[in-house]
Computed example of a mutant assay.
Amino acid sequence: MIRAIIADDEPAAGIVIRHLVQKSKLPIEIIGVATDGQKALDMIRAKKPELVFLDIQMPRMNGFEIIQAEPHRKYIIVTAYESFQYAQQALRMGAKDILLKPVEYDTFCSSVGRAIGWKFTQNDMTNDILEYIQKNYAQNIEVNQLAKLYYTTASYIARVFKKNMGTSVLAYLHGIRIKNAIDMLENTDFGIKEIAERSGYENLNNFYMHFKKATGYTPAAFRERNLHISDTISIKDLIEGPEDK
Rank of each mutant, 00 (worst) to 15 (best):
I2Q: 04
R3T: 12
A4D: 02
A7D: 06
D9W: 12
E10Q: 14
E10S: 09
P11T: 06
G14N: 07
V16K: 14
V16H: 09
K23M: 14
S24Q: 03
K25V: 07
I31A: 00
G32P: 05
A34E: 02
A34W: 01
G37A: 00
L41Y: 09
I44R: 09
R45F: 06
K47W: 07
L51W: 04
D55A: 02
G63R: 06
G63T: 01
A69C: 03
E70F: 10
I76C: 04
I77L: 04
F84L: 14
Y86C: 13
Q88I: 13
A90S: 08
G94N: 05
G94H: 09
K96Q: 10
K101E: 00
K101R: 05
K101G: 01
D106F: 11
T107G: 06
S110W: 10
V112C: 04
G113I: 02
G113S: 08
W118I: 12
T121G: 07
N123E: 13
D124P: 07
M125C: 05
T126N: 10
I129Y: 13
I129S: 09
E131C: 11
K135M: 13
V143C: 07
Y151G: 06
S155K: 14
I157C: 08
R159K: 15
V160E: 13
K162D: 07
K162R: 15
K163S: 10
N164H: 15
T167D: 05
L170H: 14
L173P: 00
G175P: 08
N187T: 06
K193G: 10
E194F: 09
E194L: 15
R198V: 00
E202V: 11
E202W: 08
N203A: 06
L204W: 08
L204K: 11
L204I: 13
N205I: 04
N206R: 10
F207K: 04
M209K: 14
H210M: 12
K213P: 01
A214S: 11
A214V: 09
A214F: 04
T215E: 05
G216K: 03
T218M: 13
P219G: 06
A220E: 14
A220T: 14
R223D: 01
E224N: 13
E224V: 11
N226R: 15
N226M: 13
S230C: 12
S230E: 14
D231N: 14
T232C: 10
D237M: 03
D237Y: 08
L238N: 01
L238I: 08
